Amino acid sequence: MAQKPLFESYISKSHQNGSECAFSNLFIWRDCYHIYWCVAHDFLLLKVKRNNVDFYIQPFGGRDEDLPRLMQELKEEHQGKPFEMHGIYDFTKERFERVMPGLTYEEDRDNWDYVYLQEKLATLSGRKLHGQKNHYNAFVKAHPDFVYEPITMDNMMECLNFGERWCDEHMAEDPSLLCEKYAIQEA
């Protein structure tokens, strides 16, 4: 947490809104994804391990003219192992193409963030959110006495216990829920 101002100083200039561009997400997932960081050549670098694959998140900050040297040093660090960089958005791709044309990019649709406009999510209006509206309607029908309440200090433990139970019950289907459980507790 002490490094939050440093992270924010780099991330706030990134023109990115992905989940990996938010300090809170990086913080709560740091142990599960073995997130390490450093500042090199005035770039904030984040190294991640997910599913036994090491990769970097797009570099934050720095000067365009220093990107080729940074990339070369990162490749050398990998000593012949595959070198991957994830979370590259259009802004960063354009930046890379300006100073390092010819790089290869591969879309990983399974790991894209899903972003909804607040007003659309609040009303579940439109064809795009039809499935979510069906789930909501089924929930209301099955639980007509449900209540909504903000999370406060009075009910926080109840929420944490529920999240832990839910993850434990579904972990056989999805072992990654162990990380989810830790991230919920950390948050």
Rank of each mutant, 00 (worst) to 15 (best):
V115I: 14
L121C: 04
D168M: 07
G126N: 04
D66S: 05
N134H: 13
S125N: 13
V140Q: 04
P175A: 01
T104F: 11
I88H: 01
C159D: 00
F55W: 07
V140T: 06
H170V: 01
C21V: 01
A142Q: 08
K81V: 01
S24M: 00
E164G: 01
I88G: 01
C32I: 03
N51W: 05
L124M: 14
Q132T: 07
N25D: 09
L160I: 12
T152Y: 07
W37K: 08
D168N: 15
R98T: 12
N52K: 14
E180L: 11
N134A: 12
K81I: 03
E169Q: 14
F91N: 07
P68N: 05
M156E: 13
F27V: 00
G80M: 09
M71P: 00
L74V: 09
V115A: 14
D113G: 08
N111M: 03
N111T: 04
P144R: 07
V48G: 00
D54H: 14
L67P: 03
C21F: 04
R63A: 02
K93C: 03
L45K: 05
F139C: 04
E94L: 12
S125P: 05
T92E: 13
V48N: 01
K47S: 12
S9D: 09
K4N: 00
H41Y: 13
L26P: 05
F83E: 08
W37P: 07
D64L: 06
G18T: 11
D90R: 08
F7N: 08
E164I: 13
I151P: 00
M153W: 10
D64K: 06
D113E: 10
Q3D: 12
V115Q: 12
E20S: 10
L103F: 06
R30Y: 05
H41Q: 10
E180K: 09
Q3F: 07
P175R: 09
A2K: 11
C159F: 15
N161D: 11
K81Q: 15
F55K: 04
R30M: 06
F60G: 06
K120G: 00
H130M: 11
K141Y: 11
S14V: 09
G163I: 02
R95I: 02
L177P: 04
V115C: 11
G80C: 05
V115D: 11
P175T: 05
Y10F: 15
K128M: 13
W112E: 14
K49S: 10
E94V: 06
E107W: 02
S9E: 08
K47H: 08
L44G: 12
H170P: 00
Q16F: 03
L74A: 10
Y105D: 01
S125W: 03
E94R: 14
N52I: 02
N134L: 15
P5V: 08
T123D: 03
C32G: 13
E77L: 13
P5I: 07
H78Y: 11
P101S: 00
H41D: 15
D90L: 06
E149T: 07
R109P: 01
S19D: 04
H170F: 11
G102C: 04
M100F: 03
E149F: 03
E106W: 02
D174C: 09
D90I: 04
A187P: 00
R98V: 15
E76V: 02
L70P: 14
A138E: 09
G61R: 08
D31F: 11
Q79K: 12
R95N: 09
F139R: 01
S9W: 02
E20W: 15
C32L: 01
M85Y: 03
P150S: 07
E65I: 06
I35L: 14
